[in-house]
Amino acid sequence: MAILEVHNIEKHFGPTRVLEDISFELKRGQALAIIGSSGSGKTTLLRCLNFLETPNKGTISVEGKVIFDAADPSTQKESEVRKKRLHFGMVFQSFNLFPQYTALENVTLASKLLAKEREDYKQNKNRILMEIEAEGKALLDRMGLADRADHYPHQLSGGQQQRVAIARALALHPDILCFDEPTSALDPELTGEVLKVIRSLADQKTTMIIVTHEMAFARDVADQVIFMDGGVIVEQGPAQQVIDHPVQERTKQFLSRYAEN
């Protein structure tokens, strides 16, 4: 069964329709790449999944349970949205690390705040905090940043910052991890280290949605690819099929521009 089902999502900002009739599914352990030219609505789609935007139409279900239904306000309660968005993790194009915290603190902050809501927090406070700390360190280690745990964001390169941001998102164990052009803000020589980390997450069967302009990467790492244009899904299917043998004319045009470079 699909871990994520998105049905007929539509989003407009005032009169401009940015997403139209977006539907797709994602299976547990799979990676989905979303490609498309700038302005096609990719970021908006990820933001809808993370409850940063409220779609005007459509439903979002995780593990068969409807967590968002535009027609049903009871699925949009502020208090529950906070819990629901934890199904998703988000890695932003611009990292958005918290500058006043070290790499490790960035990774552990949200877990520590959430732990306070646990019933056994008062009794087991020290143990819980130590576990969170240990997990944070382990995550940074996985990102190849064990020796950077005590560095502040401004002391890290862009690639290192983005890897901290990935660790921060993983710390909350999201069902689905979303990446919005994770390497677009990086110098070319730094994109490799971030892509490598994402590739290793895919190897470990992390469920992911990756918005990217790295076509070769999308073909190799993703199981599924969606090509978007003008707010609609033009083509979707297995990664190699969509990228190597696109069916739609618009997909071919888009990909041929990348082939030239």
């Binding site: 993370n50 940063l52 906070r82 988000m90 932003f92 958005n96 949200a110 921060r168 998102a169 909350l172």
Partner: peptide
């Protein structure tokens, strides 16, 4: 930056946690 609030939100923080734990120090600085 708006991204600071949004990063806090997607990490499941409440509005007041975002203010006190994320933005307040940056504001003071």
């Amino acid at each position: 930056p708006k991204g600071q609030y949004e990063a806090g939100e997607v990490l499941g923080m409440t509005k007041s946690q975002i203010f006190f734990k994320v933005t307040l120090m940056q504001l003071i600085k």
